[in-house]
Design a protein around this nucleic acid. Structure first.
Lengths: 197, 197
DNA sequence: GACTATCCGGATCAGTGATCCATATATTCG
DNA sequence: CGAATATATGGATCACTGATCCGGATAGTC
């Protein structure tokens, strides 16, 4: 890659990061190009789609989340690790308003630049979930895909200005549904909460 | 209203219903106008915003959901009524792909044509929730707004093609979190599960 | 210093919702 | 029944979106 091209690419990424933080991932690409003193065509050549731009921008975050999962796996109890990681995931998405919709679309679209990252994220969550389930700390009727969907829904919730104030609380509610009631470990009624349906 | 205007209005509503069922609520307004053999300006005069069009289109549904809640209140147990109604709400949104985002935005936007309907819906849910809580069947640390947000999140989930297959199952998961385990109503530890926040 | 492969970005295109206003028509009144 | 008026209509236009094309500028190489 030519030096001037690399310079433009890096600069575009920096500007895009700022713009997205300010206005969300739906920010006008033309705006980003304008703020980077670059033509729209240049932005689109470096990043052919919005997904491609995001992938480059979020790669670091994705790697950090994956690494975090690895740490939690050795440093925390299965249930704490799972919930803590899920919380990190939802918290992370708040920095990129609107990214959830793109990720939900990307996980099934093998053409999307975000596809691989989403699949990895789901697999990481699945690993933590399985660990918790094996330890009897998480309900066994959900899998990695369910987990991904739940986190996506909670993250989406945080993206909606009117619902965001409830996001943290509702995360706890959902988390309590995923974990087999740990509070009742002193009581006898372990986990048979659900009426058969 | 002039007779020809009324005719156009009704026809537009019918066409809009079809178009939205086929393509979701984000369908191009110009497309709707085209399919109704009408100018775009005509559609926009009858329904100044997309929300206004939806409000007219969904009014019947809203009324039905409200009525249904009334029936359930007298015909079913508090917990069954609540869950059944919530299920109806999420099931209903599947007919109007994408409506959830608009409703989430509308409930805080007093200018939106959908505002009133959303507020009513939330209030209806809150009534059913309170009834279940009073009967000791639902956790007491959530309110109507939380319920609205949860249903919205689940409905959004059903809107995403990649996540939709999990929607029904995850509804059950969330429902189980809302209901206090009925099995423990005979035990002493009623409901103090959550630290006050 | 010249040459070439690479990169750049203004111009353009089809699409979106919104708005304006001259035209067409339904309704009402004489 | 015919004319006047109030109302409704929709093509044209605007600003905006992302996508694409291609003549011109420039960096890297020989």
């Amino acid at each position: 890659m030519r030096a001037d091209a690399r310079k433009n690419r890096d600069h575009l990424l920096a500007v895009a990061g700022t713009a997205i933080t300010e206005q969300g991932v739906d920010v006008s690409l033309r705006d980003i190009a304008r703020r980077a003193d670059v033509g729209l065509a240049t932005l689109l050549r470096h990043f052919p789609t919005r997904e491609a731009l995001l992938e480059a921008l979020l790669r670091t975050s994705f790697d950090e989340l994956t690494a975090k999962a690895g740490e939690l796996e050795t440093s925390s109890s299965p249930d704490e690790a799972l919930v803590s990681w899920l919380r990190d995931c939802t918290a992370w998405t708040t920095e990129y308003r609107g990214v959830t919709v793109l990720m939900a679309a990307a996980i099934e679209d093998t053409e999307s630049a975000l596809h691989a990252s989403c699949v990895t994220l789901r697999a990481t969550g699945a690993r933590l979930l399985t660990r918790a389930q094996t330890a009897g700390k998480a309900r066994t009727d959900i899998d990695g895909a369910d987990l991904f969907a739940l986190v996506a829904a909670l993250a989406w919730l945080g993206d909606q200005p009117s619902l965001a104030p409830r996001a943290d609380h509702l995360f706890d509610v959902v988390a309590s549904a995923i974990l087999t009631s740990a509070a009742s470990n002193e009581a006898e009624g372990k986990h048979r909460p659900r009426a058969r349906d």
